[in-house]
């Protein structure tokens, strides 16, 4: 599927509840609103700027539902999670999922972010792709992002006593880090 087709299909799964659906006539609301910025018709945000893939930005609450749909829907069938990256976009923390379908050979990038730096957490996708189990542990280890419903969420590379999350941008370690 092309990126445009993917965008249309995936966007239709999560319609924005605040936007009135076109084919139903509005009833009883007579007051005319000020012309605002057009509301996006979907809860998902799509962008292709600065990337070769279609990027989907999803609210954390809908992450698991979207991922499950992406994997199981026969037209998308993204069954191969080939990269799972933790990100620190100062101040937001987030996770980037790179998905590919081994059947259709199309790819998509899903991004999810949160502003909460003290207790960031997302739903785990390890029940959808088993590979996420290790990758999410790595993200937890380096970014401190917790994954709900993860079967075995603990530090993977660092020791359990390690203080802080090294790949965050605000991590300071005077002894081990050489800053130029």
């Amino acid at each position: 599927m092309t990126n445009a087709a993917l965008k249309e299909l995936i966007g239709s799964w999560f319609p924005n509840p605040e936007v009135p659906v076109d084919d139903k006539p509005e009833k009883g609301i007579s007051e005319v609103q000020e012309p605002q910025e057009p509301q996006p018709s979907s809860l998902l945000e799509f962008t292709e700027e600065g990337s070769e893939f279609l990027n989907i930005i999803v609210p954390a609450t809908h992450l698991h539902a979207l991922m499950l749909k992406l994997k199981t829907h026969p037209d998308t069938h993204f069954n191969y999670l080939f990269c799972l990256t933790g990100m620190d976009w100062e101040p937001a923390l987030g996770v980037v999922y790179h998905l590919e379908s081994t059947e259709h050979r199309h790819m998509v990038v899903v991004k999810v972010k949160t502003e909460d730096r003290d207790n960031p957490n997302f739903d785990s996708v390890s029940d959808i792709w088993r590979t996420a189990e290790f990758h999410e542990r790595e993200v937890y280890d380096f970014f401190g992002i917790k994954f709900n419903n993860h079967p075995n969420l603990k530090r993977l590379f660092l020791t359990d006593e390690w203080d802080g999350f090294p790949l965050r941008k605000d991590y300071v370690d005077d002894i081990n880090m050489v800053i130029k």
Binding site: E49, G50, S51, E52, N55, F82, C83, H98
Partner: peptide, 17 residues
């Protein structure tokens, strides 16, 4: 921007993001 490149190493797929 964001760039992703896959290559096939002797062990499998290496991705650089």
């Amino acid at each position: 921007g964001e760039y992703y490149q896959k290559v096939e190493t002797a062990r499998g797929e290496l991705g650089v993001y």
